[in-house]
């Protein structure tokens, strides 16, 4: 069996979801993928333990840290 090369470049995505419209989106996990399409497919397949009404993914590099642990 020949193996296809694994992706040359990947990004990390944070996955957020909620079970009911009244709930806030909460962080449920993370996926690694080469593009947004595959990240969506992986997020849906990996975090399917609940019947979510909404799931979103955010590229980790788009997150702006306002405060961080250990900061005054």
């Amino acid at each position: 069996m020949t193996m296809t090369r694994v992706h040359r470049k990947v990004r990390e995505y944070d996955v957020f979801a909620r079970k009911a419209r009244v709930d806030p989106l909460r962080h449920v996990g993370r996926v690694v993928a080469p593009d947004d399409d595959l990240a969506q497919a992986y997020a849906r397949a990996t975090y399917d333990e609940e019947r979510w009404v909404e799931m979103v993914i955010v590229p980790r590099e788009a997150v702006i840290t306002v405060t961080a642990p250990g900061e005054e």
Binding site: M3, R5, V6, H7, A41, A45, T46, D48
Partner: peptide, 13 residues
Amino acid sequence: TPTLEADIAAAAM
């Protein structure tokens, strides 16, 4: 599959 994520996706699909 080539990646763990694709393994999970294969099972789900």
